[in-house]
Amino acid sequence: MSGRKELLAVQFAACADQVNWFVPLKQSVEGLTAEQAAWDATGTNSVWNNVQHLTFWNNRYLARYKGESVTDSVSNNSETFDVSAVDITEENWSNAVEALLSSLHNWRNTILDSTEDQLNTLVSIDHKELWWESIANIAIHNAYHIGQIIEIRKKQGSWKPYNWHI
């Protein structure tokens, strides 16, 4: 395994459920009810909005990386946060979290199965970024929104400091 693959895989594990320097997604939403997840603080997205957004972009880029066709599209980024058509139920909330965790795990496994040549390929002709660079940015994007989830929970009063050790 190359150092680059290992680093990228560790980043996705840290975003999903491996406690490290920051609280991962699994722990950031632990104990959160559907109603709390959908809580809309004025001027910010809800936890559920952030989970929806991350799932959209992780799945979209993972499909592109694997060479699969991407059929979903949005006219602007704000659409990726939209959960207005979703019934606010515990089952739907649990499914939303599982979908994102699954995507993060799929990224990790796909990275580990990748070759250096795949990681060093351009994302697209008009996008002059190599895949390994884009994947690193996707991991950072995940970490950013996981931090927002915790901040939303703090504003809401539903955050209990996570007891973790590194």
Score class of each variant (00 low, 15 high):
Thr55Gln: 12
Phe56Val: 08
Phe56Cys: 10
Phe56Arg: 03
Asn58Glu: 07
Asn58Val: 07
Asn58Cys: 12
Asn59Gly: 14
Asn59Gln: 15
Asn59Val: 07
Arg60Glu: 13
Arg60Tyr: 13
Arg60Pro: 06
Arg60Met: 14
Tyr61Gln: 12
Tyr61Thr: 10
Tyr61Trp: 14
Leu62Gln: 12
Ala63Cys: 08
Arg64Lys: 14
Tyr65Thr: 10
Lys66Gln: 10
Gly67Met: 11
Glu68Phe: 07
Thr71Gly: 09
Thr71Gln: 08
Asp72Tyr: 11
Ser73Gln: 14
Ser73Thr: 15
Val74Glu: 08
Val74Phe: 11
Ser75Arg: 10
Asn76Asp: 13
Asn77Asp: 12
Asn77His: 09
Ser78Tyr: 11
Asp82Asn: 00
Val83Asp: 01
Ser84Arg: 00
Ser84Met: 01
Ala85Trp: 02
Val86Lys: 06
Val86Gly: 02
Asp87Ala: 10
Thr89Met: 03
Glu90Leu: 06
Asn92Ile: 06
Ser94Val: 14
Ser94Ile: 14
Asn95Val: 06
Asn95Tyr: 09
Asn95Arg: 13
Ala96Lys: 06
Ala96Asn: 04
Val97Tyr: 02
Glu98Met: 15
Leu100Arg: 12
Leu100Gln: 14
Leu101Thr: 11
Leu101Gln: 08
Leu101Phe: 02
Leu101Ala: 12
Ser102Phe: 13
Leu104Cys: 03
Leu104Ile: 00
Leu104Lys: 00
Trp107Lys: 09
Asn109His: 08
Thr110Phe: 00
Ile111Leu: 00
Leu112Glu: 04
Leu112Trp: 03
Asp113Ser: 15
Ser114Thr: 02
Ser114Gly: 01
Thr115Pro: 06
Thr115Ala: 05
Glu116Cys: 00
Glu116Pro: 01
Gln118Asp: 06
Leu119Tyr: 08
Leu119Ile: 08
Asn120Gly: 13
Leu122Gly: 04
Val123Cys: 01
Val123Lys: 07
Ser124Pro: 05
Ile125Met: 08
Ile125Asn: 12
